[in-house]
């Protein structure tokens, strides 16, 4: 289903990023519609993760503009962008290793539930908050890991936990950076089913290497090569694009 009529959730306008003298992102322009499932693919070093880092505010951009639901975000620090409804996961698992699985999820809920920097609410008696963290735990199928330190989970479980932490705050735009990297086929199928379920109705932008996953999931695919968008459109269109075949898919299928 194409959602080209839906309003734009994330708009990237001629964004560039230099690291020293090297231009890594060389003028990327993209519009991602609300509710769209958008996959970014491209060879190693194309700048996919850098794009995520720029959108989420982890790195400042060199030039250009980024808008989230019509508001400019490219000058803001990550926590402010997050509060405006954009959340992300990391390519290398990023969780709180010494906290329990339950605590990880509860932390992810705190800001959006209005607790801010409170040092007066005792967490143990916040019934609605705790119930919500429990519900997330069930959703992620991690309920039997409630009190396990997150650092002791299996890799696939840690990835699931991170997805849960990413969606917990109720963000409307979700950025997932290679959520299935390093997983077996079964684990990938499970993770994708989970991602579909928990991102229902949200805008999803995903960097992914697994072409099966990409063509299964995406409404729109963007191909990034050397910091530039060489194609962007529905899967069928991208698959048949000559430029893409030459630059990327062809090389991969050899």
């Amino acid at each position: 289903m194409s959602t080209s009529m839906a309003p734009v959730a994330l708009s990237i306008r001629d964004v560039r990023k230099n690291f020293g003298a090297t231009e890594i992102i060389r003028g990327v322009t993209l519009d991602i519609a609300q509710g769209e499932r958008h996959c970014i693919i491209g060879p190693n070093g194309a700048g996919k993760t850098t794009c995520f880092n720029l959108i989420s505010g982890r790195f400042p951009i060199t030039s250009g503009e980024i808008h989230l639901n019509g508001e400019r975000i490219d000058q803001l620090p990550p926590h402010k962008i997050n509060r405006m409804g954009l959340s992300r996961s990391f390519q290398i698992t990023s969780i709180f290793h010494r906290l329990t699985v339950f605590e990880n999820l509860r932390c992810a809920l705190l800001w959006s539930r209005g607790y801010k920097y409170s040092f007066w609410h005792p967490l143990g008696t916040q019934k609605a908050l705790n119930a919500e963290a429990e519900r997330l735990l069930e959703d992620l199928n991690l309920h039997d890991r409630h009190n396990t330190e997150a650092g002791l989970l299996s890799y696939a479980e840690q990835r699931a936990l991170e997805i849960g932490m990413t969606i917990a705050g109720g963000a409307t735009v979700i950025l997932l950076d290679e959520p299935t990297a390093g997983m077996s086929n079964t684990e990938t199928d499970y993770a994708m089913a989970l991602i579909r379920r928990v991102t229902e109705g949200k805008t999803l932008v995903m960097v992914e290497h697994d072409m099966k996953v990409v063509f299964d999931l995406a409404d729109v695919i963007t191909v990034l090569v050397y910091g530039q968008v060489i194609a962007s459109g529905p899967p069928a269109e991208v698959r048949s694009s000559r430029a893409v075949q030459e630059a990327y898919l062809g090389a991969l299928e050899e």
């Binding site: 989420s56 620090p77 709180f96």
Partner: peptide
């Protein structure tokens, strides 16, 4: 409290806390 728990969280991974 939330502050106490987020102090633990930023100890473990300050970057993740930012994106929450």
């Amino acid at each position: 409290t939330p502050l106490g728990r987020m102090a633990n969280a930023t100890r473990d991974n300050f970057e993740r806390a930012q994106f929450m």
